[in-house]
Amino acid sequence: MQRKTIHLTLNGEPREWSVYPNELLLNVLREQEFLTGAKYGCGIGECGACTVHLNGAPMLSCLTLAIACDGADILTIEGLARDGKLDAVQEAFLEHSAFQCGFCTPDMIMMTRALLNENPQPSEAQVRDYLRGNLCRCTGYASILRAALDAAAVLNVRRNIHAAEERADA
């Protein structure tokens, strides 16, 4: 098999990868980039532990070929905090202790972030539905649901303040 060189953006930084056609995105992230926030939980797309964002959408990196990511914009949990400041979803998970062992926490946070990008004001039922492909064995999901809904509320307040400020400036 021949390696192929691809170019992409990883957590806001340009990257050049030389990858085999059968290499999985999860393995490249973990073994070449040493970004271990995305986890191997099942390897066949049944647990969600490997979730990252690919061009803004949540993606199972254990089922994604790295070679297919040429030109893509990839975000992992390691790139979610900006300038040393946690994302609102991370803050909410912290606030609600929405984890126990923490193994699924990166994927739960990435999935929640993707949900709130798509739907800033989800109902509890919508949160449950969106997260149902991401397994957690420790928390019983209760604290995760609280954190997700709280993050949505906080982001909405921030958006409203921001909009009010813009109106005031105008």
Binding site: R30, E31, F34, L35, T36, G37, A38, K39, Y40, T76, I77, E78, L80, A81, L86, Q90, F93, L94, E95, S97, F99, G102, F103, T105, P106, I109
Partner: peptide, 23 residues
């Protein structure tokens, strides 16, 4: 008190290392 756990920051940032993360 429901104080934030000492292991919380590593877990929400993905920095926490599990046995399979070591090389």
């Amino acid at each position: 008190k429901p104080l934030p756990r000492i292991d919380a920051m590593g877990k929400v940032t993905g920095a926490t290392k599990y046995a399979g993360d070591y090389v």
